[in-house]
Computed example of a mutant assay.
Amino acid sequence: MTTAQNARAAARRAADTPALDRLARVGLACRGVLYALIGVLAIQIAFGSGGEQADKGGAITTVAELPFGSVLLWVMVAGFAALALWQASEVLFGHLRPLDRAEAACKTVVYALIVFTLWSVLTVGRAASEDQKSQDVTGKLLDLPAGQLLVGVIGLGIVGLGVYWIRQGVTKKFREELELGRMSPRTRSVMEKLGVAGYLARGAIAGLAGIFVVQAALTHDPDKAGGIDATLRAFADTPVGPWLLVLVAVGLMLFAGYCFGESRYRRT
């Protein structure tokens, strides 16, 4: 076995340790906390009492303001770092289909960014606006040669992600990631309902966010793009009024329940 093969084998063994598995499950529960808080913040926005941004940064800032908030944030750092390492190991060593490998790579980046946001709140006291970050990145991309085309493709990719999540919910494909044999029939039924509602809500948000990015490309206006907060607020501006935002927010909170169950029953 070559030195490179030895290194890969050692890295794979490190990724398969029981300690990393337990920390990754903590991370899945922490993911549920974030989605629950985003849902609560979105409902507050719907009824005109929102203060924090309804995104991961706003949720993390809310956690920081709780008693022993810094302790909880350090737990979340460990959990999301473990999730990032786990997904990275799947990309590098897992026997995955190309689409599943791409999804694992995207999750690695997302979890790493959450760790960065947590670190920012711990050191600076507050997370930067995800809407502003999205607009800044979009603006820099638009300034590149063929920038409009690039941003448009990214926007269509985000729309595609939303469609993919909606399909995951409608077909209940997320069940493939769960150890269904360990669940009672009642638990399985509850997890399926939570998963369907959660994936539909996430898909709706991603789809609308992608449309905003496409609009930014077509108009060459980075201000058209936005993060989760701007997308959620857009639901309140529809003819249905704030009730559509409430419906999506409830879907996010149900997905939080799915995440808590996933932390116990996820295949790792």
Score class of each variant (00 low, 15 high):
A9F: 06
R12C: 09
D16N: 09
T17R: 08
P18H: 11
A19F: 11
A19I: 09
L20T: 03
R25A: 01
R25N: 00
V26A: 11
V26R: 04
L28N: 07
Y35S: 14
A36W: 10
I38F: 01
I45F: 10
A46C: 04
S49A: 07
S49C: 03
E52V: 01
Q53P: 10
D55V: 06
G58E: 08
A64C: 04
L66F: 10
F68L: 14
S70Y: 15
V71T: 03
W74R: 06
W74K: 03
V75C: 12
V75K: 02
A78K: 00
F80Y: 08
A81T: 15
A82H: 13
L83R: 12
L83H: 15
W86S: 13
Q87D: 09
Q87A: 15
R97H: 10
R97M: 08
L99M: 09
A105P: 07
K107W: 07
K107I: 02
K107A: 09
V110Q: 14
L113E: 10
V115S: 00
T117C: 12
V121N: 01
L122S: 02
V124N: 06
R126V: 12
A127Y: 02
A127K: 02
S129I: 06
S129N: 08
E130N: 05
D131P: 14
V137F: 07
T138E: 05
L144A: 08
P145N: 04
G152S: 03
L156R: 02
V159G: 01
G160S: 11
L161R: 07
G162E: 09
V163P: 05
R167K: 11
G169F: 12
T171G: 10
K173R: 11
E177N: 10
L178W: 01
L180R: 15
L180F: 09
S184T: 12
M191N: 08
A206V: 08
L208Q: 12
L208V: 07
A209F: 06
G210C: 03
V214A: 04
D221P: 05
P222D: 13
G227K: 09
G241W: 15
P242G: 08
L244E: 12
L244Q: 07
L245W: 07
V248L: 13
A249V: 02
A249L: 05
A249N: 06
V250T: 10
L252M: 10
F260R: 03
S263L: 14
Y265Q: 02
